[in-house]
């Protein structure tokens, strides 16, 4: 059995995808005419398959081909936005320039925010300062 497809309507990637989905059920062979405008898909049943069943498979293949062509078209149209989303997601995971420079300058024992200072000591200092002011 042979199916003739127009190369203008169906992209090659879509045809290959659709064929790949059917290689477990039928034998498939691809060829084209001399000009390359028409793609021929040869179907051969695996084992004893009735003519009606093969005809049904042919219809199923055509539907699958349409689905693959649509998927291909959508992925082609969304390529830029997909790349942008992935690029943005990867960019946000990178450490910012400020973080890098801070970590490079500071030693692990340095405490610029005074976090390592015990609470009592910190408040004693503040109390003493107030007393001096009074």
């Amino acid at each position: 059995m042979e199916i003739k497809l127009s190369a203008r309507i169906y992209p090659l990637e879509a045809i290959l995808n659709a064929c790949y989905l059917f290689i477990d059920r039928v034998y498939i062979f691809l060829d084209s005419d001399l000009k390359g405008n028409q793609i021929k898909v040869f179907f051969k049943s695996k084992g004893k398959v009735a003519g009606k069943k093969l005809e049904a498979l042919k219809g199923e293949f055509k539907n699958e081909l349409l689905r693959c062509a649509l998927r291909y078209e959508i992925s082609k149209n969304n390529k830029k936005i997909r790349e942008y989303i992935v690029g943005r997601a990867l960019y946000t995971t990178l450490p910012g320039p400020g973080v890098v420079s801070l970590s490079e300058k500071l030693d692990y024992q340095d405490d610029p925010l005074g976090i390592a200072l015990p609470w009592k000591k910190k408040h004693r200092k503040q109390k003493n300062a107030r007393k001096r002011k009074i």
């Binding site: 790949y20 290689i23 498939i28 691809l30």
Partner: peptide
């Protein structure tokens, strides 16, 4: 031959 053809088709799809 038919099985060989199918194998080539499958391998082509994986190559792409």
């Amino acid at each position: 031959v038919d099985e060989f053809n199918n194998y080539v088709l499958g391998a082509t799809k994986k190559c792409c």
